[in-house]
Design a protein around this nucleic acid. Structure first.
Ligand code: MN
Ligand code: MN
Ligand code: ZN
Ligand code: ZN
Lengths: 141, 141
DNA sequence: TCTCAAAATGCAATATAATTGCATTTACAA
DNA sequence: TTGTAAATGCAATTATATTGCATTTTGAGA
């Protein structure tokens, strides 16, 4: 699913006002091939966007289905653009995440399907989250 | 794999001194059917064990292969006793975790095996971590 | 059983991450 | 162009985690 690069339109479609902080956040995240960590967002946006505003923007975008939040295995928050068929009421992020233990990037593996898992009696599954740790293609040369 | 309930012996075997804080932590965690969250540990141990001591005990136990640490989907740390064949040099926690979205407990699903996943070219996998969100057997009545 | 060095603990200070309240500014519908 | 709801920025607060150091405790060896 291609990503919508028209950020003004994307904000309109989600009943959100078009502001510079929001556009900066979207541009920054959409340009990365891997998910962007909260510390990196803070570092890059630095003076441009207040820390609290950043938290609020990320929360809003997550609720609207614009971004999805990935807590990596260290507990750090990472953000990636959702595929264009995510909405506020129907997040579909049924892919797995690859955590590179060298560069600490988090990759969304959109093209790989998750396996079906049998659940023990009494337990009902809603969502499934698979994280794989290893070395990414760049760090492998 | 059964859990070793002789905590003094367990500490000895790991070249750790037997102290009350360590015994309290072990007892508390081993008694739970689900993994115990850091906030819960702090709350229950309260006056008994200093917060910093708790952090250090958990870190030591994790390094020795006595406990394993599970960062849940909210980024909260949870701790569970490792199966008895975990050692400092060879952690084997090849099971998945079930996060109940009602009671927020984290269950170790020891008896279920993880599937093999095909990796994209260039990516090499080392460990695999599967978290399933849903409703646990208790919350389902 | 006693001694004592290494290990473990507790407290204070500091660092990092996230949230809340509120005054001010801004976007944009009308 | 205007008015208002939404969004932002700053200060204060709360939560989470780490570091340094003085004091206490464990347990191996005398
Ligand atoms: Mn993703
Ligand atoms: Mn587990
Ligand atoms: Zn890498
Ligand atoms: Zn439950």
């Amino acid at each position: 699913m291609a990503i919508n690069r028209n950020f003004e339109l994307l904000l309109h479609d989600n009943q959100l006002k078009v502001t510079n902080p929001r556009l900066s956040v979207l541009k920054l995240i959409a340009d990365q091939e891997a998910a962007t960590s909260q510390p990196m967002l803070e570092k890059v946006l630095g003076k441009e966007v207040d820390r609290v505003t950043l938290y609020r923007i990320l929360k809003t975008f997550e609720e609207k289905g614009i971004l999805h939040k990935i807590i990596d295995l260290n507990g750090t928050a990472n953000y990636a653009i959702c595929s264009s068929d995510c909405t506020a009421h129907n997040h579909r992020d049924e892919h797995f995440h690859f955590n590179c233990s060298n560069c600490h990037k988090v990759y969304c593996m959109d093209d790989f399907h998750l396996p079906a898992i049998a659940m023990p009696p009494g337990f009902t599954a809603a969502t499934l989250s698979l994280a794989i740790t290893g070395i990414c293609n760049h760090c492998n040369q």
